[in-house]
């Protein structure tokens, strides 16, 4: 086994561990951490794939760079929503099921 294969397998490991964590944890910060690390797992796979041939492939590197920027944007927004949710409801996790909103006043 070449070292590249180690990293490819490692990426799969991170991906499934984080997928599991994302589903079982209710706390918003855990979920966001899991999503972010899942992204890193995909990036690691791409980086490993780039290293297979004779030449190092710059295309996956550019994809990963784009992906890192997208990931930090998504994480920042998710954390902001989590904070706002906490300020409004005082909890940092989602209810098991979204309760039907029976409040009287609606704006449309």
């Amino acid at each position: 086994m070449s070292p590249v294969t180690f990293y490819l397998l490692s990426s799969v490991g991170i991906f499934v561990v984080c997928l599991y964590g994302l589903i079982v944890h209710a706390h918003l910060i855990r979920k966001i951490l899991a999503l972010n690390m899942m992204g890193s797992a995909v990036f690691l796979l791409l980086t490993g794939v780039a290293r297979r041939g004779e030449l190092t492939d710059p295309v996956p590197h550019a994809m990963v760079l784009t992906g890192i920027v997208v990931a930090v944007s998504a994480t920042a927004f998710a954390l902001a929503v989590a904070r706002r949710l906490y300020e409004e409801c005082g909890r940092a996790y989602l209810p098991e099921e979204d309760p039907e909103d029976l409040s009287e006043e609606r704006e449309g």
Partner: peptide, 17 residues
């Protein structure tokens, strides 16, 4: 490389637990 590749999923697991 092997140690590093093994450490990453384990560390991810620790982050979540």
């Amino acid at each position: 490389d092997a140690v590093l590749a093994l450490a990453l999923p384990l560390l991810a697991w620790r982050v979540l637990t």
